[in-house]
Computed example of a mutant assay.
Amino acid sequence: MAKRNLLLLALMALASSIAAASVTTSTRKLMFLVQPQPNQLTYHNGAVLHGDIPISVLWYGGFTAAQKAIVSDFLLSLSAAPGASPAPSVSQWWSSIHQLYLSKAAAVGKNGEHGAGATKAARVVLSDQVSDEACSLGKSLKLSQLPALAAKARPANGGIALVLTAQDVGVEGFCMSRCGQHGTMDAKSGTAYVWAGNPATQCAGQCAWPFHQPASGPQTPPLAAPNGDVGMDGLIINVASMVAGAVTNPFGDGFYQGEREAPLEAATACPGVYGKGAYPGYAGQLLVDGATGASYNAHGAHGRKYLLPALFDPATSACSTLV
């Protein structure tokens, strides 16, 4: 009887160790950086945004003037004149999108009405800003409501409506499966929308990493946010990722990898990569502000510093970083 009990205990211990190993492996797989797949990130001969790209912003919910300035300065930084900010700069990151993607679409010459002749570098123009502090559609939004909100921003043809939701506004799937989204408003007029939410109080561990302790995976100390606002600095990362996708794959037939309904795009194909040497739980080698200790990889307008995602280079199947 004693031998049977010992054998049973041994089998239970073995089963527990196998189960623990399985859980660990699954978690690590979720944290792994995206590896090149047989279906590479390629151009699908559709339209891309090009030339002057007006961006209109809808502030949905409460944002302070300081928070709005973080975003508006970022948008102004995208198409700043060469030398306007020290290197590495936000405008250099934006130029990489043209070099890696938009110029390739122009060379092919099959990118449709809105992409044809897209030899001129894309230039972001901050067009308009509208506030809806009263949250006219409520504080619990469905994804299907985002195009209607985007329309409130009054985007111009060939432009992007940027919908930003405050930290107390819930959006379907926010935190659980997404930190932002982009989609089509009107393909005929070449208009797209981007949505991102301030994750400060809802899911900073998911949508503001590496400026907050990660919700899961390797637990490394959070980095100091370059603009002193964990939620907004995290939001900038997500805005940058979604704008990169909206410009290179605005209508679902541009540059992407995988399924059209759930594509990996210019920035989302490099999750968690911000500097050289990045690995799960480590953002990579970044610049550090000597005065504040904040981590960043790009200089912007008015002395701003930002952390921007790596961009996937289709030619090398590797993530290209600013630092």
Rank of each mutant, 00 (worst) to 15 (best):
L126M: 12
S103H: 11
T201L: 13
T27S: 06
T25D: 11
S16M: 13
S295G: 08
V288R: 12
L6N: 07
Q35P: 00
S320T: 09
Q40P: 06
V125E: 12
G170I: 01
S241N: 11
S91A: 15
T25R: 10
T184D: 15
S22M: 12
A196D: 03
L75G: 02
K139H: 07
V169F: 09
L7G: 03
G138T: 01
Q92I: 03
F74N: 00
A318Y: 02
G197E: 06
T201Q: 14
L41T: 03
D289F: 08
E259W: 09
G117I: 10
A269K: 03
A291G: 09
N227M: 03
G300M: 04
G258H: 11
A151I: 01
W59C: 02
P210W: 03
K29M: 08
C135D: 06
V243T: 14
L137F: 14
G275Q: 08
A294H: 04
G245V: 02
A262Q: 11
Y101A: 01
P82F: 02
G138I: 00
G252S: 13
S295T: 04
P36N: 05
V288L: 11
G303L: 05
G228M: 12
L30A: 11
P226S: 06
L137G: 04
R154F: 02
A105D: 12
A318H: 11
G228N: 12
T42K: 12
A267S: 08
G170A: 15
A200T: 07
F255T: 05
V125N: 11
A21M: 07
A196I: 03
A121D: 13
D186S: 13
A156E: 14
A47G: 05
I160W: 04
I18H: 02
